[in-house]
Simulated scan of single mutants.
Amino acid sequence: MPEDHKVPRGDYEVRESLAKTELAEGRDLNRADAFNEYFRQVYGNVSRAPEVKVLDGKKPFQDAHAGLYFGQVADAYRMIEGEMVPVIVRGYDREKVNELLGVILNTRDRETRKAAWRALQGYTLNIYAHQAKKLLQPDETRPRILEPVPELVERARRLGAEPLAIYQWPETARYDLKLGIVPEVEADLMTSL
């Protein structure tokens, strides 16, 4: 449960409320069937999720997400205040990320590209826009950290469009399953932004 108790309506709200009830009633969560009732109630109430405004009207949450209306879904279900910027972490799995970006750059089939974008989410994190702005600008204490994603810049060039505001963490950085991104800069850089 978020500290400020701000939970998006719909699915998140239903799950948070049901989990709180289960814990308040002191249910034995070690029973094999402990979660049967919880999930029955969750799936029975998910349809209450508000619709997401998209270009051509409104769509149910799942349809908007499946249709890659990520910005609109994020606006409708924002749990963290502040504008966020996506950052691709190639160091998590360079081969896979390179493959997915290659598909996005070179494939004409829209469905194949959509699938690659979806898969790329697993290698992407979001940081606050004000952090990204600082990480894009070098200063006397550190080099520029974030870089544009070359494949996305090239795709935008081919389409005659502006590149998406999606960046990549330096390829030399590594990803630790417990710590997340391990930067090759001062340890307190991210917390000082």
Rank of each mutant, 00 (worst) to 15 (best):
A156Q: 06
P138T: 05
F39D: 07
Y128D: 09
G44T: 08
L125P: 00
V185Q: 09
L135G: 09
N106K: 15
Y38P: 02
I88S: 08
R40K: 08
V185D: 09
L100H: 05
Y128V: 02
T112L: 11
G160Y: 13
G10T: 03
A32P: 00
R110K: 15
A173R: 02
T107A: 14
T107E: 15
M84W: 10
P2V: 05
L179C: 04
Y38R: 02
P60Q: 10
I181A: 11
R113K: 12
Y175G: 08
P170H: 04
Y92C: 01
L152G: 08
N106H: 11
V7N: 04
E171F: 01
R155M: 13
P170Q: 05
N98V: 10
T191V: 13
A34S: 15
P170I: 04
G91W: 09
F61Y: 15
I127A: 04
L135F: 14
T107M: 03
E99G: 00
A156W: 06
G71I: 13
A187Y: 06
E16R: 14
P148N: 09
L164W: 04
A66Y: 08
T141W: 00
D28G: 11
P148Q: 05
G102L: 03
L18C: 05
R40T: 07
L179M: 10
S17I: 00
S192E: 14
L120R: 06
T172S: 07
A132L: 12
E151M: 07
T191Q: 10
M84D: 01
R94S: 11
L55Y: 01
Q41V: 02
E162N: 08
A66K: 11
R78T: 14
D28S: 13
G82H: 09
E13L: 04
E99S: 07
T21H: 04
A19E: 08
V182I: 15
E162M: 13
Y92S: 01
